[in-house]
Design a protein around this nucleic acid. Structure first.
Lengths: 343, 343
DNA sequence: CTGAAAGCGCTTACAG
DNA sequence: CTGAAAGCGCTTACAG
């Protein structure tokens, strides 16, 4: 149907001009055109101007696929996130993009929950991406550690040696405890993330350690999975407890769970913080606008994204700065935490 | 430093095996290896087995950049979203990915808020993406309409003829009105999106039309921009109104604004829905868990993403199904709407 | 069913 | 400063 000859004037789908077309029009070699594009200083002013005119005249646009093949790079970086629908990750991704775009890397985002192990692994192939930022600590990545430059952000994978950008989760949990204890709470409950998750473990350890250091009783720990709905279920469990066994303060491993909990106990006629203080983790945007506004631990999401991206760029560039980056968190005190009622 | 010869055994960075390496080991031509990879039926069983062994032996992995260059495709589809941190979009993106991945297209996501017009336009170049899904109706896209297959989702660009996947925003607004009127409300207020936004206009038009059709007074309209914070400001405005001028029901062009509003009026001691009924739009995950749980209009986000992606695939494949797709919404009645108090 | 060869559209030592 | 030519790693008409 379509003619393959050099010119098919009738075809609506005229072939895009190539470097060679520009070169012909300008009366120079393709090498010179290429240099004008990527190394203008190597070219005489005169030649440069002729070429630039020809580029304009032809409407030439560089073909990135060809350049990338020649450079043996893909021009893409993949971020593997455990749950795209969690707003916690959006701002991290925006931070990455802000660093990657100027370095002319595309950011590809993939939701690992929605993918087979095989297709997740396929992202680690050098021909698919120049680098990988992994935000999911549950991935079986030991197998392809060598394939492609890789950095871990937020979560990490125990056996895997790769630079990590993270917060000090134990210290963050201790910060929450300090706040609650300062308000006068002695019985503190916790709703944890998924048991095998590294963040779950670090936050729980920090919590236990902080309580112990103050001679306070070990926390009541309820199971969760970071999701809203698991927080709601934790609310139901809290309500089902005999009144004198209900912790007066609950610390959650994620804001989403704290939201679910608050919704549930409020629906059942309880007041936060009068009946129970609630402390979240993450500081996602929405929690500042709830009633009560949520006290929480703020993670520097933009910075996490930016640092992870620039670390990866270093790695791709051959600089082996395999050091971990620990970013600071911030205790944000709002209205969901208050002194215990019965004291 | 690095030897360029065919074998540099000392180098840690051994070159990845190519098709030619597999062919040599198998004792066949590269054409045959290529066929085994992409068209196994064209190859005799015997040859296929030899090649498959060689692939395993060498650990060969296909280079996608090379294949894509040859096929004159990039293997990528770009989604341009107006605000990545809005959870409304995440599930739409997940829907797209679910359709695109099996067709072996990568989904690249870019946040148009964070980009220059120039770099946004650069995504429409055929060498960067095989197609574009635009979720931002405010983009100056007339200029590159021709460059790359394109579909519009959620929002649309008036001058631009491209297939659209959307909901019936006017009908959705009418649905909200019907619910509120059925509860007994006659004075209905509205918090709109950004004035130039097409969704803002369609929803407002639907609202006005539905009120008019019932002989009810025109709505009080407050300015917003879909964000949480603009909803909070609308709350302050509502509170500042003389008591007898406050609409007893407020309909919001986004859930985020409804959340901001509720937060603000609750902080000031008012009750939803006792003092004011609140109706959102979108049904983002969190609003089911607030107190009160939000009544809203549910958009079929997963379906929007899937349909947009498959329409784009059709376009890329040359099928010109340039018809618009209108997806159904659903009225979700929860606890934030109730009959007016003084009636 | 299979192979030799051209080509996708660039870039870059090398030689001048 | 500039050009001829090889090459990045595949795919695919074409001929056998």
């Amino acid at each position: 149907m379509l003619r393959t000859g050099p010119s098919s004037p009738k075809s609506a789908r005229r072939k895009a001009p190539r470097l060679a077309d520009v070169a012909r029009l300008a009366g120079v070699s393709t090498a010179t055109v290429s240099r004008v594009l990527s190394n203008p200083d190597m070219v005489s002013r005169q030649a440069r101007e002729v070429v630039e005119d020809a580029i304009r005249a032809t409407g030439y646009r560089l073909n990135h696929a060809a350049r990338n093949l020649r450079h043996r790079r893909t021009g893409g970086v993949v971020a593997l996130v455990p749950d795209l629908s969690n707003p916690f990750f959006s701002q991290i991704l925006a931070g990455m993009s802000a660093v990657l775009a100027p370095a002319s890397y595309n950011l590809l985002v993939a939701d690992t929950r929605a993918m087979s192990a095989e297709s997740i692994l396929s992202y680690a192939e050098p021909s698919r991406a120049d680098g990988l930022i992994v935000l999911d600590g549950g991935l079986p990545l030991e197998r392809f550690e060598r394939h492609v430059p890789l950095v871990l952000a937020c979560e990490w994978i125990p056996g895997l040696s790769a630079p990590r950008v993270k917060i000090d989760n134990r210290a963050a949990a201790a910060l929450a405890v300090a706040h609650l204890v300062e308000l006068g709470h002695r019985r503190i409950g916790h709703v944890a993330g998924p048991p095998e998750n590294v963040l779950t473990q670090a936050r729980l350890a920090g919590l236990k350690q902080a309580l112990e250091a103050r001679g306070l009783p070990a926390p009541l720990v309820l199971a969760g999975d970071f999701s809203l709905d698991s927080g709601r279920r934790a609310g139901a469990q809290w309500l089902a407890l005999p009144e004198d066994e209900r912790p007066g303060a609950m610390f959650f491993a994620s804001d989403a769970m704290a939201c679910g909990f608050i919704g549930e106990v409020q629906h059942r006629g309880f007041s936060v913080p009068n009946d129970v203080s609630v402390m979240g983790f993450d500081d996602i945007e929405l929690v500042a606008h709830m009633t009560p506004a949520l006290s929480t631990i703020r993670q520097p999401r933009d910075a996490i994204g930016r640092r992870a991206a620039s670390l990866l760029l270093d790695l791709i560039g051959g600089t082996d700065t395999a050091e971990d980056v620990i970013l600071p968190v911030e205790l944000v005190i709002r209205a969901s935490t208050a002194p215990p009622r019965d004291r």
